[in-house]
Amino acid sequence: MKLLKDTWLMFQRYLFVFLRNPAWVAIGVLQPVLYLVLFAPLLKSLTATPGFPTGGAYNVFVPGLLIQLGLFGASGVGFGLIAELRAGVIERFRVTPVSRFALLLGRALRDILTLVVQSLILLLLAIPFGLQPTVSGVFVMLGLVALIGLGMSSLAYAAALALKSEDSYAPLIFTLSLPLLLLSGVLLPLQLAPQWLQHIAQANPLSYAVTAARDVFNGHGSDPDVFKGLAIMAALAVVGVLIGARRFSRAIA
């Protein structure tokens, strides 16, 4: 119960901080919207290419875009934590009896909420372009985004606590997130990739999320790939939370 209560206290705190500056919600959505407007139209002429998944350019591209939103949104959360470290807030919390899991989960839940709201905005914006969402598709999609948000933001917090400075945190997330993105099939389906590239992509957990997301948006909702995607993201979330909470309980020497 203490865990729940502490998590709720932390969640409120970070939601408050976030709501003081709601522009961040819009800024987070801006980048995917640019992809939607300036990139997705290119795919229309590719839909006839052999190997391109069926369902239309937007039903193929938008699910991937949401996964990308989750990845990028979550990987940037460490900056705020580094600022808090510097202000002494984290040290202050660590002297209190607050649950160390709550220190992580309160924050991560705020990040998840933000991502879910952003995802809904993006889905709505994509409809006029030609996205045809289904209810079940949207739910599975949001579930995937939430799990990615939990896993990746926990890992981002762990990295921020370990590195303690923007100067080393920023290069780390930029170097890691680009290959994760390229090897996930977000921009172009991996079915178009040569064999060796597909093999490498198999090592990237996010590629399974993208496959799952595309399946549910294109009438393959009961495909085993969907469960596989959800299961792998759930595993990522568990691993992320364990690593993150461990970091919060360790000394910040």
């Binding site: 901080v17 003081r20 808090e84 202000a87 002494g88 807030v89 040290e91 202050r92």
Partner: peptide, 9 residues
Amino acid sequence: SQEGSSAPE
């Protein structure tokens, strides 16, 4: 602590 403990916002 010596450095302070409150969040600026």
